[in-house]
Design a protein around this nucleic acid. Sequence first.
DNA 1: TAAAAACTGTACTTACGGTACAGTAAAATC
DNA 2: GATTTTACTGTACCGTAAGTACAGTTTTTA
Lengths: 205, 205
Amino acid sequence: MAKGSETRERLLGIAEVAVLEKGFGATSIDEIIAAAEITKSGFFYHFKDKNHLARALLVRYIEKEEFILDDLFNRSRELHDDPLHSFLIGLKLFAEMMEDLSSGHPGCLVATYCYQERLFDQEIRDLTRETTLVWRKRFRDTFDEITEIYPARDSVDLDDLADMVSNTVEGGIIMSKALRDPGVLPRQVMLLRSYIKLLFSPTRN
Amino acid sequence: MAKGSETRERLLGIAEVAVLEKGFGATSIDEIIAAAEITKSGFFYHFKDKNHLARALLVRYIEKEEFILDDLFNRSRELHDDPLHSFLIGLKLFAEMMEDLSSGHPGCLVATYCYQERLFDQEIRDLTRETTLVWRKRFRDTFDEITEIYPARDSVDLDDLADMVSNTVEGGIIMSKALRDPGVLPRQVMLLRSYIKLLFSPTRN
DNA sequence: TAAAAACTGTACTTACGGTACAGTAAAATC
DNA sequence: GATTTTACTGTACCGTAAGTACAGTTTTTA
């Protein structure tokens, strides 16, 4: 079992890089198996078709993301009791993490899939939607905690505000890629942080 | 000339929809010519290869965008003399425009190209970069005008703030697609507006 | 009416997604 | 230690797509 899932992981790793660079439709199975030094039959042993590869890629990506976010915001929670300040610390940590990616964020699979939706079956499209809703819930819970203590200085919908976190990251990845400047994403996260700070800071500041 | 450029436009229109739905690599020339009811030879008369189609698509898209943004922010400028309030009006108008797109924003070609960069030649990658810099300059000029009158309540880099406008739109398009809710993009634009408002409003508010 | 523009038609090459299926080496299970 | 399962290899094949080449034809414009 160990050897098999090792090969599977290698295939997924190679495919992920290729998909984020060229898009799913432009990534050929032939190039994946060439890089993985495996035969086509070997590939189809692991994934019955390209759609199954797509799904496995997405599931793996989502799990990795969730783990990273859990870890980061748990740490920020340990650094400060107050939900607002803890979240502001979390955003700073996130920005720093994005800054440390030497060649920039490689890209978000959810975003690439959204921009190529017609290539995927309903199951995959539902997965991207549910993932985005999980992100929303994560940050919505945070903002619920914050508003229990700090009243917002402008009337905003908290689901929209929660979406703004994902929105900033997704937009920042694109802007970083477009400008070929990995620094854009972390700086945009810091701007989001500035908004949260202004929005919830007590009036006398 | 009229008939030729008419066919060319038709090809570009069909290609744009397909590329935004499936990505460039997954859009076949055969499907484009089938929809346009033209032969393959006819296609290659207009575009010598797929890369030339990609470039023409992008150039056309950029020109359309620029025209729309010019029009919108010129109108908002006419509605209010003050640069801050004029910009806030412009963002509201933009949000309304996004809301009126019945099936949501079809997607940004710059974003799809960024997520499939390895498919395109250097010239196209430079084009996406320069376009993003033009967007930056547009909003940077606006924020320069605003800061001449209103001091920012938090220390922010104005280029970053200018990028935040594009960032919000690019992210909003992805979030709208992921959640299958066209309303996300306009609501995110309104959140950006809320930030600009908080950031530049005189302290007593 | 001549020339340029805008195509059609045919034929071919290479690459890719996918199928089918027989065979095999290594690892886990009984 | 034999057997089954896992994880592959190898070969051969099909349909579709991108792209090339080039000769011929219609339509528009000068």
